[in-house]
Design a protein around this nucleic acid. Structure first.
Lengths: 168, 168
DNA sequence: TTTATTTTTCAATATATTTTGAAAATTCAG
DNA sequence: CTGAATTTTCAAAATATATTGAAAAATAAA
């Protein structure tokens, strides 16, 4: 397979993969494009490569910066802004975990905590089951939260080294 | 907070949470409803509780069965079909992990393997970076695959017990 | 300043996804 | 079998999400 073809397939597949995980297809494609580009790109480069509009590139690039996956790069002597993606996949993964945890897991745990306190007969089967289900989801969420915090703090070698060994 | 109100809020929030993860809102709501229902429900029950159409209930219920999260229940003497959700949250989580792994992670790793073999100058910076990025994503994917396999096999006590202790 | 270049915004448009509801298929009691 | 009850299908409609593109804002060179 030729490089150009492979790049294109990676970009498309990464986009499709993203949508399955609630990530905007174009955002995933831009991320993929920057991952496989040696040099930083301008918004015009991305418009051209992906055949999308200026507004689309701009919004998604700013989202990616918000996720901490893409950086603005200043190239001296150049008027335009350039962008490049973090290439260390471990950092990419921990960054995504960090953000999703903050945006989704933490609020969910907060909500579940509120739902745990039900007024009414504690002997009522409905009340019992509800608090049991909510409580166990919350517990699992807190466990995930804790584990992910450790994962985020750990560096790649520590993880692939120590932990993986434990898993035989 | 009253039970009815809490249930409703849980169902709505679970639906919203689901959409962020690429899961159909109604599917997540049906799942939530079944999680907090003591007894199995019919399609009509769900139509009423969630104010949605028969077709919608039917399609999503069958999806949930396909995900292994909901079971058909036969109630003797009753003509209608009843449905109930697995209440053990650990089982729910492992089932979801199992399915997403099978449907998404495994195909992605397969694709990346194909993209690793690029014809052309191995000294070319573009080729080098591409294979490096693809290779590292694949590696991380394989690692996740391995770890999740162990997680799926492990039972809850083993996980919450041994593993969590290791994480202090 | 003024002006050319570049970035950002956002209402309008296009696309994708979900939902409806009625018809068709299936199931099962009589 | 027959027919009423129930489930399933799926084209059409509704809704939600993503994209465009041109105007406005911001930036920096002259």
């Amino acid at each position: 397979m030729k490089l150009t073809e492979a790049k294109q397939q990676f970009i498309n597949s990464w986009g499709a993969f993203g949508t399955q995980w609630g990530i905007n297809r174009t955002m995933a494609q831009i991320h993929a494009l920057l991952l496989v580009s040696v040099n930083p790109l301008t918004q015009d480069d991305m418009m051209e490569e992906l055949s999308i509009s200026r507004g689309n590139v701009n919004m998604n690039i700013r989202d990616l910066i918000g996720w901490g996956l893409v950086d603005r790069v200043i190239i001296s002597g150049e008027r335009k802004e350039y962008f490049s993606a973090e290439k260390d996949i471990w950092k990419v993964a921990t960054q995504i975990i960090k953000e999703r945890k903050k945006r989704e897991l933490d609020p969910m745990i907060k909500l579940l905590s509120q739902l745990e306190n039900i007024e009414g007969d504690k002997k009522d089967k409905d009340v019992q089951q509800f608090t049991q289900v909510i409580g166990s989801i919350k517990k699992m969420g807190q466990q995930a939260d804790k584990t992910l915090d450790l994962l985020i703090k750990a560096d790649e070698n520590w993880f692939t080294g120590s932990i993986l060994k434990m898993f035989k």
